[in-house]
Design a protein around this nucleic acid. Sequence first.
DNA 1: TTGATTTATACTCATTACGAGCATATTATT
DNA 2: AATAATATGCTCGTAATGAGTATAAATCAA
Lengths: 343, 343
Amino acid sequence: MAPSAKSPLSNSSAQIVLGLSAVIVSVDHGDPKVFIVRGAEHALAANITSPHEDGDALPFGPFDPQQHATIESGLRAWVAEQTPLKPGYVEQLYTFGNRGRYAGQRDEAQRVISVGYLALTWQDDLERARMKQTANSAFWADWYDYFPWEDWRQGRPKLISSVIEAGLKRWVAEGESRDEKAHRRARADLCFGLNEAGWDEEKVLERYELLYEARLLYESVRDKKLKVDYVLVPGRSMLYDHRRILATAMGRLRGKLKYRPVVFEMMPPEFTLLHLQKTVEAVAGHPLHKQNFRRLVEGSGMVEEVTGKKSSAAGGRPAALFRFRRDVIHERPAPGVKLAPAG
Amino acid sequence: MAPSAKSPLSNSSAQIVLGLSAVIVSVDHGDPKVFIVRGAEHALAANITSPHEDGDALPFGPFDPQQHATIESGLRAWVAEQTPLKPGYVEQLYTFGNRGRYAGQRDEAQRVISVGYLALTWQDDLERARMKQTANSAFWADWYDYFPWEDWRQGRPKLISSVIEAGLKRWVAEGESRDEKAHRRARADLCFGLNEAGWDEEKVLERYELLYEARLLYESVRDKKLKVDYVLVPGRSMLYDHRRILATAMGRLRGKLKYRPVVFEMMPPEFTLLHLQKTVEAVAGHPLHKQNFRRLVEGSGMVEEVTGKKSSAAGGRPAALFRFRRDVIHERPAPGVKLAPAG
DNA sequence: TTGATTTATACTCATTACGAGCATATTATT
DNA sequence: AATAATATGCTCGTAATGAGTATAAATCAA
């Protein structure tokens, strides 16, 4: 690209600030977790000295091009620096740069571009111990706290009928023209599985965007400085556009699960098939058919049994222990875990 | 993110320049095309006044945060400005920022971060006419000119056995340890389908990266300033890391084809099923089974027949004309085109 | 005009993948 | 010894997939 210092290319980009945000995910005892930072702590991590907002945020930091050869290595470096975690799997998600999505942004002329990353990790006991020291300024939160409508493990969440459907109905009715109304209805139906199509667990971002646009989330009210008289959709909000980045991560991970062996990045070295299943269910957000899950995983060559060892953690018959066969990656186009729903 | 003008976050990022690169794809009479700019023309488009390299490049330009609310709108704006094209479908690919990958980069302290986009378009006659005016400084190139090993439509490309296998063999032999050698061999086998697994048409980027690392491409020799005595893998090279970006785009598009109705973005309003099939084959890089392709497309509800019209363009029996049913997007989780290989 | 050639379209068949459920095994608990 | 809980093995119907055969409708060469 060879821009000289004087070229308009670099001039027009001088106002851009590049940051990195990380969605660090792990599954703990069947609950999906995101690593969250709050208030003073997150400001420190990002070296921000100006007044800051209070609330939940993803860990984020600057990208220093002098120090790091690739964006990913920059990300890994500050994750290692700012958290006690060592994620194995790291994947770039998306580069976010929408104006007006940053409530905390003072200088309107300056634009924050943030590159979002998804990182997967398994919490070993050591990490868990160190975690407690950082106390409540940085912690693991259940990701369904931010997206209660995405958790179908106990069946269809009640708040869909009780709050979301009504809210979307209002939004549909507000459409200017007949066409616009029909279009909004179709979009709402498709996103939330209100038509025959059913629920698509991968559409996390689409649903978030829809709720945002329908002004049903705290973030929409905040960014557009609205006063509203209707009830918002329950769920914790986040600073800046971090809930949107989290939605992107969830959708991506749910998709990836099906065609790449990424679950194992969140598993201990040895595990039972039920443990694996619960982990997949935590991410996918719905229950799976146990026997078929077993058939699939065993048949895929992704795991091998640890001979002679049994787990008797649960109540009933002891389960065989398995470990991930890292070789699959070298043998075949490494498959994922199909998501046959439970009956 | 709320950085103040004085925060270290913005200081450490001051050296970053953000650019946009576009992989603009269309399929013309069964041949997959990328939009390419060359030499003086591309320097002009990017407003670069410093001395520049000569060679093929993707169209790219600056991102002006003042003028555009989103990165995507910035991209659309300069594509409209610099080319006669109006892509309908635009998708963010990846954000590239590797040091040392930019041979044209003079100022080592300044880092170019480029956000790659994939754009799909259909060449109508008007565009085709306007295209001719821009002459040879900007043109449509067959994307297999850059990736001859990716075109399996006429069977396995000969250069795989004649050049690539030998080259990779040398690279494997150069491995330091026994383990390293085994690892390299496994990776080469998997990438190029030399084991039972077979060829995975989506691994375009993996294959490019492997060849780059094995110093079998012009780009590796260029970036590392090597002198080599073995024969490089044939195929046109590109400036900077543009061939890598193109590889990313090809892999992504080949994947997307299977689960989203993106082919239609490259089709005229009305088309025959064979035309559609040839377009899919052009992108996927291998032939498809005609009868099954037909069954699948007709059964998916993605197309509707244009009653009363037939195409007699080809030699034999006239074919029915179809058009894309845009409604599928609103009806169901819009499907793609499965890639049942031909016998 | 006829027969060869080319392309389009309809239909069949075997195999596999998938969703659902039943049955049995092995442990702890009461 | 009965009961509850979990693990594991197996069957079955349906749908999707890969491959091939058969027929229809046009052009072209003689």
